[in-house]
């Protein structure tokens, strides 16, 4: 064999590069649909939800209801006005509850405290509770998930 003959890469090297390259391309190509498949789709809010009748909420009542798969506190003040707050703590989303003995809303997980108008007044919660829209129509209480 003459020394002047151009050197070509060995066949094994070429096959190695071809197989490795194909595997990489396939992994990248397969990765995108797999990532999209496991990424859950965001569902739009279902809209206003009827959570009960006015008669079920005498003044001074606090009840927990579900709106769009989220727990919500519906508060009827002594003057008869309705307010609704997301029952998810603004700290780490534990479900908060009404503490009647202290007349405040409390998060048991990390000792967060909110006033009855949803303001964060103690503990680690950085923000007030999210307030939702409430309306009354023909005796039905309607809560909208969009505040």
């Amino acid at each position: 064999m003459s020394n002047d003959e151009p050197k070509s890469p060995p066949r094994r090297d070429f096959l190695g590069i071809a197989v490795g390259g194909s595997a990489t391309v396939f992994a990248v190509a397969a990765g995108y649909p797999v990532a999209r498949f496991i990424e859950p789709r965001t569902r739009p809010p279902s809209g206003p939800t009827v959570v009960g009748k006015v008669l079920e909420f005498p003044p001074g009542t606090v009840k927990s209801v579900m709106v769009d798969e989220r727990p919500v506190l519906v508060v009827r003040a002594a003057d008869g006005q309705f307010r609704a707050f997301s029952a998810l703590c603004s700290h780490l989303q534990c479900v908060v509850g009404y503490a009647p003995e202290r007349n405040q809303i409390e998060c048991p997980c990390h000792r967060g405290v909110y006033s009855m108008d949803g303001q964060n007044i103690g503990g680690p919660p950085p923000r007030p509770l999210e307030e939702l829209q409430v309306s009354v129509n023909e005796g039905a209480i309607i809560v909208s998930s969009v505040g």
Binding site: V65, A87, C94, C107, P108
Partner: peptide, 19 residues
């Protein structure tokens, strides 16, 4: 019951320092 307050919901022991 998602409506109920998370009372008594302590994390597992290995998350206690972080908690």
């Amino acid at each position: 019951d998602p409506r109920l307050s998370s009372t008594g919901a302590q994390p597992p022991w290995y998350f206690l320092p972080f908690h």
